[in-house]
Design a protein around this nucleic acid. Sequence first.
DNA 1: ACAAAAGTGTTAGAGCTACACCCATGC
DNA 2: GCATGGGTGTAGCTCTAACACTTTTGT
Lengths: 248, 248
Amino acid sequence: MENHGQMLEQYKQQTKCLVALDSIIFGFDGEKLQCLLVKRGIQTDQESWSLMGGWLRPDESLDQAANRIVVELTGLNHVFLEQLYSFGNPMRDPIERTVSITYYALINVHAYEEERNKNFIAKWFDLNELPPLLFDHHQFIQTAIQALRQKAAFYPVGFELLPEKFTLPQLQALYEAIYMTTFDKRNFSRKILSLDILEKLEEKQRGFSKKGAYLYRVKEEAKKESANDFHSIVSNVDGLFRQKLITS
Amino acid sequence: MENHGQMLEQYKQQTKCLVALDSIIFGFDGEKLQCLLVKRGIQTDQESWSLMGGWLRPDESLDQAANRIVVELTGLNHVFLEQLYSFGNPMRDPIERTVSITYYALINVHAYEEERNKNFIAKWFDLNELPPLLFDHHQFIQTAIQALRQKAAFYPVGFELLPEKFTLPQLQALYEAIYMTTFDKRNFSRKILSLDILEKLEEKQRGFSKKGAYLYRVKEEAKKESANDFHSIVSNVDGLFRQKLITS
DNA sequence: ACAAAAGTGTTAGAGCTACACCCATGC
DNA sequence: GCATGGGTGTAGCTCTAACACTTTTGT
């Protein structure tokens, strides 16, 4: 009991602070990587855009909170969402000391179009044309891009950003956007197909090119594996991108 | 001004919580990977060991706080320390809602021996023989091991765990401990030496084996590069360990 | 002399890179 | 019929993986 009192004492002395969850939401429009931002309007700087953020509530875990906030702001459920990094410089939020735990999400731009039209607060921005951002949110995004590159080199994570059916040229464009480079299409398709996680469909994409490109989708088995244990997918996308990672 | 009031209002409504920094400190005794734990004695469960932890203070950043705590508890300054993950289940600390931001550190067991003898609160444990741990600290350690494996596959990070001069067999033993496997010594030495970051010394290690093994140390250039920009070291240790990473 | 650990080279196979031409269709 | 983007194969090279014997020296 002696110790119990001592312990509570020690807890009480500590300063508490606000905990925010901020999510970097990536999308892909077929050409460029994009990031979803909101104008919160309740901030000091009326003109700055901000990441999707909110505060941690007493009864929820970090993952739950990040997910709740993404759902509240986009209406999209079950998105790929992964913790990224925590930021906590004492002066990062000038109003009150806040620790921000960041997550990054990958979503399909088109799946989100309808939702977005309902509440106009959110807007997509090209990663190269970001507006001025709240606090240190710009740094968050840079960190998230690095993480996305790392992740994509090992796990076929990019598919989250595409519609259910997609063509190889689309997939290649996505990887080229992620790594800001170009790949040889013969090597790219050989590499991707060797992973044995895609199935080729009968249909072709029409309307974009004259010839039309075959559509693919992720095999059901591969999706399941990925849901159960993401690490179990044996992806060797890395070989294709190793040098890019190093020089970047 | 309207908005300013609204904003402050919104900040005030939020619940605050304690922020703890917990560090997983790895060491290597020449044979097995180890982890430094303390018996804090001020906890509910008197018998459980705990990671090196402390609370965030109002005036410091997360990195500063983690570093301060490691210095306070070990006396070692300038150790390799990197943020790992943040944990925040509502019930993880039964006494009060606490978000724990974890860091992992790599230190040289021998450099720490003297310090350790001064304050007996800390003790090394083999990773395979961990005692019961406070709260969810066991999970923290498992996450840290995964991160260490990932990191070590790309960056020659393991050297932090060895004394300044070390032999190739020692280095190999370290990597084998990290990955819980064995490597062919011919392939291992070829691979490591091809990185061109080690210099071979005249001296040999005496006393352990009859023949004695040549000592090596990390080249000065490589250390500098690593200090300035860790990512710039072109390490291809990955090739050697890729399949281990995937199957683990 | 012998036991114990250190050191060293070669070969086959896999994966990566670079490279060029034909195909299908809309206009 | 021609312009546009889609699709496919090969050869050289590099890196990896598997494998065994000699050297040194303490006992």
